[in-house]
Amino acid sequence: MKYAKILILAAFAGLMIYGSMGLPDRADPDNRMHQERSITDTVVAGSYFIREAYNDANTPNMVTVVLGDYRSIDTFGEQVVVFAAGLICLLILRKFRPV
């Protein structure tokens, strides 16, 4: 079992290094995600945020705009996760006295 685990760990490391070879250089402004248009000529979300965030929401902090507006359902889901965590603690640790 221990050797199997070591094998898994090695396989994971190997896979990650193999994958990292195909990744573009870090911080290179020519990366896909930093372009204005994608290769299928659709809008690239990240660049759109930089250009339009202030015009759309009057807010200088782009992260806040993305968080609160463009991807607000993500944030909503995240809030639900936190809410779920609270409820779950209640569920697991609290017992209500029998009626």
Partner: peptide, 8 residues
């Protein structure tokens, strides 16, 4: 990984 490569 996918996001790095494609940007979406």
């Amino acid at each position: 990984f996918l996001y790095t490569v494609t940007g979406t």
